[in-house]
Amino acid sequence: MRRFAIALLFATPVLAAAPTTHRSYGVWHNPANSVHVAAKPCGDKMCGVVVWANAKAKADAAKGGSPHLVGMDLFQDFTQVDDTHWKGKVFVPDINKTFSGTVTVVNDNTLTGKGCLIGGIGCKSQTWTRVK
C-alpha cells in the first residue's frame, strides 16, 4: 500500500500538468453551414483552418482572390483572454482581408465570432455551431 501511495504522489503532478482540451476546440460551421472550420491549438495560441466548404463558398472566396479556401487559416493567432474569450485576427476570403477579431464561447455547442475594422468600428458578428 505504501508503494502505491508514493507512486500516486509522484504521478499527481504529471497528471495535473497534462494539457486539457479547451471547449472552443473542434469543428464549427458558420450560420449558412457553407464553411466548416477546425479550431485547434497552434502552439500556445488557437487557429481555425477550413476543413470543408461548399461550392458557393469556394467560388466566392476565389472571386475575392483566395482560390484555395479549404486549408486556409481563417482564425489566426488567437490568444486566450479568459475561459470564454479569445482575441486574434480573422481572415475574410471573400474580400481577401484580415481584421481584428474575437471568439466568445457561448456554450459547448455555440461560438460567436466578431470581426472589426481598425478601432473597433464596422464590426460584424456570426454565430458558429459545433459540427457533430
Rank of each mutant, 00 (worst) to 15 (best):
N107M: 12
P19A: 12
L15W: 07
K87C: 01
A5W: 14
G113R: 14
A61K: 00
P41E: 14
A7V: 10
T21G: 06
G113C: 08
A16E: 05
C47T: 05
V70L: 14
Q80Y: 08
V27D: 04
D83R: 02
S125E: 15
T84N: 13
F91S: 01
F78C: 00
S34E: 13
P93G: 07
G65M: 12
V70W: 10
D108N: 11
F4Q: 06
T112N: 14
I121C: 02
G122N: 12
M1K: 08
S100M: 06
N109Q: 14
I118H: 07
R2D: 08
L69R: 01
N107E: 09
S34C: 09
V81F: 05
A11N: 08
R130L: 10
N33D: 07
V81M: 06
H68L: 07
L74S: 03
V81L: 10
V35H: 04
A61N: 02
A11E: 09
G71P: 02
G122C: 03
K89P: 05
D77Y: 12
G122R: 00
A38K: 12
V51P: 02
K40V: 00
A59I: 00
V51E: 00
K87Q: 12
I6K: 08
T79Q: 14
N33Q: 11
S66G: 02
I6V: 03
K58C: 00
H29I: 05
L111R: 13
K114Q: 12
V92H: 11
A39W: 11
V49W: 08
D83Y: 06
G43L: 04
S125A: 10
A61H: 05
L69Q: 11
G48V: 01
P19D: 12
F91W: 13
K89T: 06
I118Q: 09
L111A: 02
L8Q: 10
T98F: 02
K56T: 04
G101C: 09
K89R: 15
K87Y: 01
V27W: 09
F10T: 09
R3L: 14
N33F: 11
F10K: 08
G71A: 13
N30E: 11
K97C: 00
Q76Y: 00
Q80R: 15
G120V: 10
K40H: 13
F75D: 01
A16F: 12
G26Y: 11
D83F: 04
D44A: 14
